[in-house]
Design a protein around this nucleic acid. Structure first.
Length: 270
DNA sequence: CGTATTTGACCCGCGC
DNA sequence: GCGCGGGTCAAATACG
């Protein structure tokens, strides 16, 4: 990955006293160019991010499909063993395909239920998925098929919003959270800043640096427009936070401002 | 003190 | 009808 080094510092120390307006216009122009380059860089990063996410999504879907087929095959074999004491395979591959297709059709005829897979770090034990909406947890259960608990959430952004969400760690990969959404939001998307603090607990590393651990990636289908806008906002927020938390940046900024203020004492008023 | 989370109790559907 | 398991409720608790 190419790295770009962009000078974001304000050149406040070198000020020709006679050409202040000219200097300011030039500085403004320079900052506009920097801003444009940053925007282009962000767009480029975003495109790479989306491409990688699509690739990951395809890989995960392939893996899930493969595992589903295997488990169905095993189940079919097991059921045929029960039905037939000679343990011969009664279900043909064709019938199996029909069953799979009908399962898929069932999924298609339930459009309001969607699954989202979220990659997290293995050490992350929370069941909070940061998706831009505000959720209130109303229950938690340990289910039979999975040792990790399943958390139940309701959308708390609008009291009348009927959307519910179930979050549980994947049985195969504990680093993947499986969020099942039921229903559709009857309100707009909210800003990430309104996400409950709990869901952002793991974002700060030991040194206080900005390190996002959940979600590392949202894999499956989330409304693309909403996802794009929220993640863009998130990226911008991250960049701003990174800059303000960088001691070098703040020190340089402080030096520049203090230098500028001190310079003003020996300069004509403007 | 208000709000969010936790967790045991309860409800309900499904299979036997 | 009974037991089991998933889903929901609501009182207790934690937290800012």
């Amino acid at each position: 990955m190419e790295s770009t080094c962009i000078d974001t510092s304000l050149n406040l120390n070198v000020v020709p006293s006679l050409n202040m307006d000219e200097f300011l216009v030039e500085e403004l122009h320079r900052l506009s160019c920097e801003n444009k380059r940053l925007s282009e860089s962000l767009t480029h990063m975003w495109e790479n991010y989306e491409a990688m996410q699509n690739q990951l999504s395809q890989l995960v879907n392939k893996k899930i499909e493969h595992q589903t087929q295997q488990s169905r095959k095993r189940k079919a074999e097991f059921e045929s063993c029960i039905n037939n004491t000679e343990c011969s395979t009664n279900i043909t591959e064709e019938e199996s395909v029909i069953k799979r297709t009908s399962d898929t059709m069932n999924m298609i005829t339930l459009p309001k239920v969607s699954k989202v897979l979220v990659k997290t770090e293995a050490s992350n034990t929370s069941l909070y998925v940061m998706d831009g909406y505000q959720w209130r947890k109303y229950g938690q259960k340990v289910t039979r098929d999975n040792p990790s608990p399943r958390a139940y959430f309701k959308c708390s952004y609008a009291p009348s919003c009927p959307v519910k969400k179930k979050v549980q760690k994947s049985l195969d990969d504990p680093t993947i959270l499986v969020a099942t959404y039921e229903g559709e939001h009857n309100h707009g998307h909210q800003q990430l800043a309104k996400i409950p603090l709990v869901s952002r607990q793991s974002e700060e590393g030991p040194m206080g640096s900005v390190h996002v651990s959940s979600p590392t990636s949202i894999i499956d289908k989330v409304d693309n427009v909403q996802k794009s806008s929220s993640i863009r906002q998130f990226l911008v927020q991250q960049m701003a936070t990174s800059l303000t938390r960088d001691p070098n940046f703040t020190a340089a900024l402080a030096t520049a401002i203090s230098g500028r203020i001190l310079d003003q004492t020996s300069m004509p008023k403007w």
